[in-house]
């Protein structure tokens, strides 16, 4: 796809995502019934879980692109990884801010060393490490390789971190969707949640394409600057 195509696709997807976001807000505020035990604060769940899903999607996607970059050495794969990591950082920040807002009401404390919240915090630091490595390297080619290694090792380590923090302590509500015996969430809430996941995924890919188009143009500008010099 050309850069212009990327931009068109990015615009279309982002607009679709924004439309979806408005619908999601309407569903979450007016349509879905209030959960009995937790009350109104449970509504944070419809943005918290989709944001978490998106940030893990981002690291998976970035690790895949990084692995392919190390193998094929196509600049586009490195750009894709960079843009996905940036999006992951944005959505992980959302998880880390909406989670405590919910936790203060539900648990009475802003922060607990709850497994999935801890995992997201560590993921956030892996994203930060990715940018630090990239920016601290004088030779850009080297920085790309180093950053790719950070993304891949981070993605491999996530299952280990997950298992260990779960073993360490669990306070978080049990999974309500991905369960072997089927979801326990009532239909309306499940629908709102799944719609939220869809909307956030569309928004992520829309903005990702936009961001990717920017990187493509930057590479073009750098190339022109080099040939002019």
């Amino acid at each position: 796809m050309s850069t212009a195509g990327m931009r068109r696709g990015g615009t279309a997807l982002t607009l679709l995502g924004l439309l979806g976001l408005i619908t999601l807000y309407w569903m979450a505020f007016f349509w879905v019934p209030t959960e009995v035990n937790q009350g109104v604060v449970q509504r944070i769940f419809y943005i918290h879980v989709p944001a978490a899903w998106t940030s893990f999607l981002a690291i998976g996607f970035a690790a895949l692109a990084s692995g392919m970059y190390l193998w094929l050495r196509d600049e586009r794969l490195d750009r894709a990884a960079l843009c996905a990591i940036e999006g992951g950082l944005v959505f992980a920040t959302l998880v880390l801010t909406t989670g405590p807002l919910w936790g203060k009401i539900a648990w009475g404390t802003y922060w607990t060393w709850e497994p999935r919240l801890t995992l997201t915090l560590l993921l956030w630091f892996i994203f930060i490490g990715y940018f630090m490595v990239r920016n601290a390297t004088e030779d850009p080619e080297k920085g790309k390789r180093f950053a790719a290694v950070v993304a891949i090792v981070g993605a491999i380590d996530i299952p280990f971190i997950h298992l260990s923090v779960v073993w360490f302590r669990s306070l978080h509500p049990e999974p309500v969707v991905a369960r072997p015996d089927g979801p326990t969430l009532p239909g309306d809430m499940l629908l709102t949640l799944l719609f939220g996941v869809l909307v956030f995924t569309v928004l992520f890919f829309g903005l990702f394409l936009f961001r990717y188009a920017v990187e493509g143009l930057r590479a073009e500008a750098d190339l022109r600057a080099r040939s002019a010099a």
């Binding site: 630091f125 930060i128 490490g129 630090m132 490595v133 981070g154 280990f160 971190i161």
Partner: peptide, 10 residues
């Protein structure tokens, strides 16, 4: 430390 501490949690 920034790179390895998050990975050393397990």
């Amino acid at each position: 430390p920034v790179l390895v501490f998050p990975l050393l949690v397990p």
